[in-house]
Amino acid sequence: MKSSEADILIIPGWSGSGPDHWQSRWEARLPTARRVEQADWLRPQREEWAGRIVEAVRAATRPVVLVAHSAGVSAVAHAAEHLRPGEVAGGFLVSPASEDAKRALPDMEAAFAMHRRETLPFPATVIASATDPYCSQDEARALAEAWGATFVDAGDSGHLNSDSGHGPWPDGLLQFASFLRRLG
């Protein structure tokens, strides 16, 4: 699959992704990419965030590829229970946040902080760093396994965001292109 053949849904985590974040850059660069907006980026609500993803998936006109970061990965996992098989072509899930990290955020809904650990109804890749302050690589690997996803070790890369020096994240774009090719 080529990026031009998919509706690429960008799903940021807590506080959204600022202008220097790789998700914002990809959204600007990839013509079929668009952000799934949330009503409140600072107060994630499980059903609201998941519902927005499901709405965006159902409004798509091409095969859907989800590109999530941090707490956005949790939103994707929560949305998965409402998605029918075949509605999403794949999920590119980067730097999931641990339950403890999410609980430490102000105004975090307990139901959102919990990880859903059922197999996702679409192929997925989880990319995580060995030095992510918001999730150990062991926990990220366990999530990938629970979700039936491929795990990719990002090495010593922090939280894979602009604060860790991954504004443009060209290596991630190459991995994303490879992920799309595997989807067909």
Rank of each mutant, 00 (worst) to 15 (best):
M1K: 12
S3Y: 05
S4M: 01
S4F: 02
E5C: 09
E5F: 10
A6N: 09
A6P: 01
A6K: 01
I8W: 00
I11K: 05
P12A: 08
W14P: 04
S15Y: 08
G16P: 13
G16Y: 12
S17V: 14
S17W: 14
G18A: 11
P19T: 15
D20T: 14
Q23I: 04
R25C: 00
R25E: 02
R29I: 00
L30A: 01
R34M: 02
R34W: 04
V36E: 10
E37W: 15
A39V: 03
A39D: 10
L42S: 00
L42E: 01
R43I: 01
R46P: 06
E48I: 12
W49E: 03
A50Q: 11
A50M: 12
A50F: 08
G51C: 12
R52Q: 15
R52A: 13
V54L: 05
V54T: 11
V54S: 07
E55T: 03
A56S: 15
R58C: 14
A60Q: 09
R62W: 09
P63E: 02
L66A: 03
V67S: 10
V67N: 12
V67P: 11
A68N: 10
A68C: 10
A71S: 15
A75Y: 04
V76L: 03
V76W: 02
H78P: 06
A79C: 05
A79G: 04
G86C: 14
E87S: 08
E87Y: 06
V88S: 03
V88M: 04
G90E: 11
G91N: 12
G91A: 14
G91S: 10
S95A: 15
S95L: 13
S95N: 13
P96N: 06
A97S: 15
A97V: 09
S98N: 07
A104S: 15
A104K: 10
L105V: 11
L105E: 14
L105Y: 09
D107S: 13
D107L: 11
M108Y: 02
M108E: 09
E109S: 00
A110C: 01
A111L: 03
A111V: 02
A113K: 05
T119R: 09
L120F: 03
P121N: 09
F122Q: 08
F122P: 06
A124F: 04
V126G: 07
I127N: 00
I127W: 01
S129H: 07
S129K: 05
A130R: 15
A130M: 06
T131Y: 07
C135E: 11
S136E: 05
S136N: 03
D138E: 07
E139D: 12
A140N: 01
A142P: 03
A142N: 05
L143H: 08
L143F: 12
L143P: 08
E145F: 02
W147D: 05
W147Y: 07
F151V: 00
F151C: 00
D153K: 01
G155S: 09
H159N: 13
S162A: 15
S162M: 04
G165Q: 06
H166W: 10
P168I: 01
D171M: 08
D171A: 14
Q175M: 11
F176T: 11
A177G: 12
A177E: 15
S178A: 14
S178W: 08
S178C: 05
F179N: 10
R182I: 10
